[in-house]
Design a protein around this nucleic acid. Structure first.
Lengths: 254, 254
DNA sequence: CCCCACTACGTACGCTGTACGTAACTAGGA
DNA sequence: TCCTAGTTACGTACAGCGTACGTAGTGGGG
C-alpha cells in the first residue's frame, strides 16, 4: 500500500534495470540518452539541459523521458557517469604512485576541459556510479605502493579531485562567463578588473595590491597545475615530509 | 545610442552606487536585501531563493527588487559577500602562518556549516567583493612570514579554500540530500549503501571493497579536517619539505 | 491466448527569471 | 520657485522549466 503506483521510488538509478522484464522493448537506451544530454551540455552549457531539450534531441516526447530517468537529478548522474567512461584506465600502474596520480589528475583536468559543466554537475551525493567505481578501483591500484592506511588513500583521492576541480573551475571561469554573458566578450571581465584596480588604488589592501600588481599573466598553466598538485602530494608522502614534531596539526606545544 | 535605456548594463554590482543621485530614496538597503536572501537560503536551501520569495521577504513587489539587483546572479554575489562579513579578522596574525591559516580555514568551514549553500553559490566569476578583499588582505597578512613569492601565496589561498570547500561539501552532502529528498530521512542513503555493498560483493573492485569494508565510521571529523589541511600546507612549507630532486613535478629523470 | 505491466505522449499546473509599461515621487537647474 | 528628468515602485505578461496525471497501444510470461 505505502507509496505504490508510479510515484515515490527512493531508488537509485543504478539499481533500476535498464530493460524492464515485462513490457515492450524501450525505443532508446540509457547510453543514448546520456550521450544526448552530454552533447547538449557541451554545446549549450549545463543550463541548456532540460528534459524537453534532451527528449527532442533523441526524438521522443518530453514525458517519455521519465520512463528512463525518474528525476532530472538522475539525468545528471547519467551524464557524469557517461563522461567518466572517457577515462583511459588501460595502462597498468607504473609503480610510481606520484607520477601515476599526476597522470590521473591530468586526465580529470582534460575531461573537465572537454566538459566544462562537469565540476558543477558532479556531486558527492551521486557517488558510486559504475564508472566511478572503475575509477576508484584503478586509483587505489595506483596508490598501492603508497604506505598509508586505506582511509588516508580515500582522503587523498578526494582531495586530489577537489583540488583539480577547484583549479579547473578557476581556470575556466572567465571562458564560461564569456559564454553565458549577454555582453560583448571580455567586457564584463574588463569592468571587473577596472573596478578592482580602482579599489586597490584607494590604499586599503596594500598587500593585495602588491601581489596583484606584480603581474598576473604569463603563467604556464600546465606547470602551475602540476606544481600545485605536487605540493598536495608532498603532504601525503611519508618519504618526503620530515616527521611532524607534534601529533599532527599543532606545530608547537601550547 | 548603443544599448541605452534600462537594459544592457555590463556593470558589476559593486560599481553601482547604492543610492542614486536623482530619484526618491529607496525603501530598502542592499544589506537588508542580502540579509533577507541569506535568511531564505538558510531556511529553505539555495533553491528557495527566488526573486519573488526574497521580494516578499522584504515586503515589496517582485519587480521592485530589480531596482536593487539587476540580475539574480548579482543577488547571489550580494549573499556571498554578506556572509563573508561574518569572518572575524580582528586578531592580528600571530607570526605562525601555519596556525593562523588553519584558523582561517576553520572559520571558513564554520561559515559553510552555518550557510550550507555557500560552496554552491560561491564562484570565482564573482571575485573581489568588498568582504572578499578584506579576507584576501588579511590572509596575505597572515602569510607574511611565509617566504614564497606572492603568486604562490595566492595559489595557497586558492587551494586552501578549494580543499575546505571540497571537504565541507563532502561533509554536508548527506545532510543536504536528506533535506532535499522527498523520501523519509536516510532511506535514500540506505538504498545507495545497499547497492554499493551488493556491487562490491560481486568481486570486481577488490581494493575498493577492502578499503571500504575496513569501516567507514567513527572518524573524528575535526581532526580529519586539520590533518588534511596540514598535509596541504606541508607542501607549501619550504622548511618542512625536503628540496625536490628534479625541477618541480617529475620525480625522476625519464 | 489473454492479461496486464510497461511504453509512449499530450495536457496541465505551479513555478521560475525578467522585459516592459505606467504612475508616483524627488532632487537639481532655470 | 517651478519644471523636468531620472528614479522608484509595481502589475502584467511571456517563455520556459520540472513533472503529476490520464490515456492509448504494445508485447512477453502465465
Amino acid at each position: 500500500m505505502a507509496a505504490s503506483g508510479r510515484t515515490a521510488r527512493p531508488e537509485v538509478i543504478w539499481a533500476r534495470p535498464e530493460r524492464a522484464a515485462r513490457g515492450p522493448r524501450p525505443a532508446h537506451t540509457r547510453a543514448e540518452i546520456a550521450a544526448a544530454a552530454v552533447r547538449v551540455a557541451d554545446a549549450e552549457g549545463p543550463g541548456g539541459v532540460s528534459m524537453r531539450r534532451v527528449a527532442a534531441e533523441i526524438g521522443c516526447g518530453t514525458m517519455s523521458l521519465y520512463n528512463y530517468v525518474p528525476r532530472k537529478e538522475d539525468l545528471y548522474e547519467l551524464m557524469v557517469d557517461a563522461v567518466s567512461a572517457e577515462y583511459d584506465l588501460s595502462a597498468e600502474p607504473s609503480g610510481d604512485w606520484r607520477a601515476d596520480t599526476l597522470a590521473l589528475a591530468a586526465q580529470t583536468r582534460a575531461l573537465m576541459h572537454r566538459h566544462p559543466w562537469l565540476p558543477r554537475l558532479m556531486s558527492p551525493a551521486h557517488g558510486f556510479s559504475p564508472n566511478a567505481l572503475r575509477y576508484l578501483e584503478h586509483f587505489l591500484w595506483v596508490l598501492e605502493p603508497l604506505d598509508v592506511p586505506g582511509g588516508t588513500k580515500m582522503e587523498l583521492i578526494s582531495m586530489v579531485n577537489g583540488v583539480v576541480s577547484t583549479y579547473v573551475v578557476n581556470e575556466l571561469s572567465e571562458a564560461e562567463r564569456a559564454r553565458t554573458s549577454p555582453f560583448p566578450p571580455g567586457q564584463e571581465h574588463a569592468a571587473r578588473m577596472a573596478l578592482l584596480a580602482r579599489e586597490l588604488s584607494r590604499g586599503d589592501h596594500p598587500r593585495l595590491a602588491a601581489v596583484l600588481g606584480a603581474g598576473f599573466a604569463a603563467v604556464d598553466l600546465d606547470a602551475h597545475f602540476a606544481r600545485a598538485l605536487g605540493r598536495l602530494l608532498d603532504g601525503f608522502d611519508p618519504e618526503r615530509v620530515s616527521p611532524p614534531p607534534g601529533p599532527s596539526a599543532p606545530p608547537s606545544p601550547a
